[in-house]
């Protein structure tokens, strides 16, 4: 008897809890009357009784975090060999069955290195031994083809690695100095690249570079309706992300960006910086800049290093000056704050 009473108490309690949650939840109360607002390009505020479709100004998050990717460099598991050389060990796993939200509400079958597009940014110093345990957990054959100097057998072209657990070890000496892409090189190549099997490989000079706030930007695009035209463009995969999540930097601090263009279909892409000019090192192979400009154009897998400093705080746009791309997502904002350390 006591048991049944306590059971009924429990039932009543949980029922009232559920009812309480339902009635007090803001969604329930405001479901009929709630009006949401969003902003237009001209700054006007528009009210709607429906749902907002705004990947541009409305702050939104998806599974992949471009902010985390931006300043993340993978130096590998470090050891030293008998010759005294640094060995950097990495494990990279390829997959091709993930459905990822690549813009708010838009889901696309991404093919990934270590679960993300782009894959991890691999960073080594010139002369280091880079050793990569490659595991292919996809259903198709995949490889990793690094741009840079290495023996033929390490090129990731004639050694396709079978799916469902196929393995291969890529081992080579990092070089030359610069910023290079890596990507899968299995045919049909375009299909493997546009689905997201690419990443950045940075080789630092032995003497190092000047201290800076460093970041990686992979310029990429997605053809979500398979008509051989990109529907979305971005710096680091998510369209408009740095527009609603401005990149925080400081005045009078050197900014260094490793930029790699991985856009397919469109013969060119470009990078234009507002309120400033940058020193540009094509491919990053030379330590002397080739250009001082605010606009650089890239063809496929063209890349380089940009260096600049802002004198004045505030919001500065950066975007493709092929404006179509910027209106489809390849646009962002630097939010320049006053340097807490004063003039450096």
């Amino acid at each position: 008897m006591i048991l049944s009473r306590s059971t009924s108490m429990l039932v009543i309690l949980s029922l009232s809890l559920i009812m309480g949650v339902i009635f007090l939840s803001p969604n329930f109360l405001e479901a009929q009357t709630e009006r949401k607002v969003f902003q237009t390009h001209s700054g006007a505020i528009i009210e709607t009784s429906g749902q907002i479709l705004d990947p541009i100004y409305s702050v939104s998050e998806v599974e992949f975090d471009p902010d985390e990717f931006l300043r993340n460099f993978e130096y590998g598991k470090i050891s030293v060999n008998s010759e005294g050389k640094t060995i950097r060990d990495y494990t990279i796993i390829a997959e091709d069955n993930k459905i990822q939200e690549i813009s708010p509400g838009i889901f696309y079958n991404v093919w990934t290195f270590n679960g993300t597009v782009p894959g991890p940014t691999i960073r080594a110093t010139e002369g280091d031994i880079v050793r990569i345990q490659f595991i292919n957990n996809g259903s198709k054959e995949h490889t990793i083809h690094f741009h840079g100097t290495h023996p033929a057998g390490m090129d990731g072209v004639f050694e396709p690695v079978g799916g469902n657990g196929g393995k291969f070890v890529y081992e080579f000496e990092a070089g030359p100095v610069g910023v290079h892409p890596y990507h899968c090189h299995v045919m049909p190549l375009e299909e493997h690249i546009i689905h997201g099997l690419y990443g950045v490989f940075i080789v630092d000079p032995k003497e190092g570079r000047e201290k800076a706030d460093e970041m990686v930007m992979v310029l990429n695009g997605f053809d979500t309706d398979f008509d051989t035209e990109n529907n979305l463009y971005a710096a680091n995969t998510i369209p408009f992300y740095y527009q609603h999540h401005p990149i925080q930097i400081n005045t009078n601090e050197l900014i260094r960006i490793y930029v790699v263009n991985m856009v397919e279909f469109d013969p060119i892409n470009n990078f234009h910086l507002h309120g400033n000019l940058f020193k540009y090192y094509p491919t990053g192979t030379d330590l002397v800049p080739s250009f001082f400009t605010d606009m650089i154009t890239f063809s496929q897998t063209e890349r380089g290093i940009m260096e600049f400093e802002y004198d004045f705080p505030g919001k500065y746009l950066f975007h493709a000056h092929k404006v179509e791309f910027s209106e489809k997502g390849w646009v962002g904002v630097f939010l320049v704050n006053d340097n807490p350390n004063g003039e450096e």
């Binding site: 390009h41 528009i46 709607t48 009784s49 429906g50 749902q51 907002i52 479709l53 369209p239 209106e327």
Partner: peptide, 21 residues
């Protein structure tokens, strides 16, 4: 289906869908 994005002349625009997407 779910409507998630709108564009004018193939350029993405902020928009809303009523009553829902």
């Amino acid at each position: 289906v779910t409507i998630v994005m709108a564009d004018v002349n193939d350029r993405i625009q902020p928009a809303a869908v009523e009553p829902d997407g």
